[in-house]
Amino acid sequence: MNIKIDGIRVDVPEDFTILEAARFLGLDIPTLCYHEGLSAWGGCRLCVVEIGEGDRKKMVTSCTYPVEEGLVVHTSSEKVVKSRKMILELLIAQCPTSKTLQDLASKMGLSQVRFTPKWEDCIYCGLCIRICNEQMMGKAIGFVSRGDKLKIDTPFDKESDDCRRCGGCIYICPACTMRCPGPDHDIVLCNGCYNNLQPTCTSNEDNYNCWMGLKYECGTCVRDEESQIKK
């Protein structure tokens, strides 16, 4: 299949997705819910790219879109970059303590989050479900409900007999593992908190404890140990 990505013409196998074609070319498209060993989900929307030309341009997720003959792709147009930043802003507001998200933010140059943080554990990327279903063959968890009531759970919230406690879901989760433990910790962080960043919407909440003593002044805020994050 002959396609054109960012002006580069390339011939790729029929069953490739745009993401695979881009990676083949060495172009960096950020992803979150994509994992090579699992089926593509297309839910995090970070890998969006712009396809088509003129009036017929639209944005699609590169991880799910199969290549077509003559396809024209732009991986970093202004619209794409704006969208990625906004999506990341929303996800970080959901789950500010995820190292994966903070790293992505640094790479993209995102420096402020204008939404009230929700301090959740989950960004509903579905990786845990897919590793359980497809790799570990446990099929113990899935999406439940929709909208703001969406959650990932076992059927009817009951303890599962199918779950073998393999830990695959924890291993693959980008949000709950490797939470940012603060700037003084051994584990290297994105160092976002060392930049001169604008205050986030933390000004709306006052139960944070900035470890650098610069309350409200850094871009990455960490909860103090007393207030636990609820499940």
């Binding site: 297309g42 906004m86 929303l90 939404f115 509903y124 909208g147 703001d148």
Partner: peptide
């Protein structure tokens, strides 16, 4: 729409919630 969003896409799910907020 926030209640009816299926929740798959981060942008729709979070976007409608934030707009409503």
């Amino acid at each position: 729409l926030q209640e009816e969003s299926c929740g798959k896409c981060s942008i729709c799910r979070e976007g409608t919630q934030r707009v409503t907020e």
